[in-house]
Design a protein around this nucleic acid. Sequence first.
DNA 1: CGAAGTGTTGAAGCAAATCAATTTTCGTGG
DNA 2: CCACGAAAATTGATTTGCTTCAACACTTCG
Lengths: 238, 238
Amino acid sequence: MQTTPLLRRLQAIATPTDEEREVLASLSGATRQLRPNEDIARVGEQPSVVCLMLEGIACRYKISADGKRQIMSFHLPGDMPDLNTLFVHTMDHNFGALVPTTVITVPHDKMRGILVRYPRIAHLLWRETLIDAAVYREWIVMRDRPAYARVAHLFCELFLRMQVIGLSKDLSCPLPLTQLQMGDALGLSDVHVNRTLQELRAEQLIRLEGGTLTILDWEGLNYAGEFDSLYLHLKRAA
Amino acid sequence: MQTTPLLRRLQAIATPTDEEREVLASLSGATRQLRPNEDIARVGEQPSVVCLMLEGIACRYKISADGKRQIMSFHLPGDMPDLNTLFVHTMDHNFGALVPTTVITVPHDKMRGILVRYPRIAHLLWRETLIDAAVYREWIVMRDRPAYARVAHLFCELFLRMQVIGLSKDLSCPLPLTQLQMGDALGLSDVHVNRTLQELRAEQLIRLEGGTLTILDWEGLNYAGEFDSLYLHLKRAA
DNA sequence: CGAAGTGTTGAAGCAAATCAATTTTCGTGG
DNA sequence: CCACGAAAATTGATTTGCTTCAACACTTCG
């Protein structure tokens, strides 16, 4: 049942046939355990495998000239974040774990074989990479808004993404990120993330403790974050 | 020779075979002329055609709650910016012309036929959409830097992209954008774009007049913009 | 030739960064 | 189980790059 997260994820954004589900369910490869801040691939490398996330949280990031880390996306179980390395061979960014994380690595050759034999799976995965791009676009927009909206937006997005892979319970989901990590993703200092979290708590929109996010007011949080889930292209809404 | 820009663009990022070049060169569809600020597709729509840009400059953008326009990407001749609508059917953003622009529209069915018959073309175009995503990632990072670096970065990117499609001459290329349009793409006010342009001119890095950008100091501009062209994944460097 | 869009300049205000402690939490070994 | 050190969270004070507001000048073109 290793690949359950992948199927959950793909069924959230598309409608694979039984055969396709079977092929994807049988995806296998070396399992790899990563510790927080351990990298999976770095700028300049040319990976020969793609990762399937099973557990944990990973991110893509770049390091600026002044040493600041910019997180460009978060990746959750079920994601295949480096599918792009099949066609864009050289990493233009880093990819690493933020918390203890488990992935399986599938050789490029094997993936390519599947794409050729099952064009519909290729299209499914193409769709997945396009939704990835849609998330980037939303982040470009979202990161131009005030801190309050940015943090709210991030929580809305992560909650929905956790929900479709079955990791939420009611209005709670795991969110074991530090304020520094959130800041690097939101383009905010950790200090300001902290102050903003306090605002969101004071407004009774969220609770965040012990690595668990609880949304107290979904509508209110959506409004605060100017959040519209359309860009996630999920088949069903929350 | 309508599709020349497309071939130029694809040859800048990949190596199509003669047959593939021929198929792509024969791509045809209705020609459409667009005036500045005329939209090609809007949020919520489900286009049934994809555009191939022949001339001009288009952009993807969203309008925020407060009415601000956020430009998420620019598109130049040779780009097929809404290839994504083949697999992600509903537009989550707007797509429109910024200056007088010519496109041809190719029906989805026709494109799908080509993708099925020529898997290598599918992979080529997939690569194209992945590079699009790489540009989004870079923009997320770039937009967190000071205004001076952002403007410099934009000019470096646009110059290289113009160059690979044959629209540059020496270190000059067309750049008929207003300061407001640049501001919407950079997350800066038009006022601040103006002041920043003056700095770049004062530093003898660029000239920008009459819709033409001239780079006076490529190295200096790269440094100012913390620009590294890796993310564009061009086969040859500048 | 006048109107609209674009570019330019100046002054004031503000959201968030930065700098600098201090407190709390948490993992780990004694 | 507690003590310890390191990481994370929190608080306060100061600084700053950019926005906003407000004019005004220039260009372009019907």
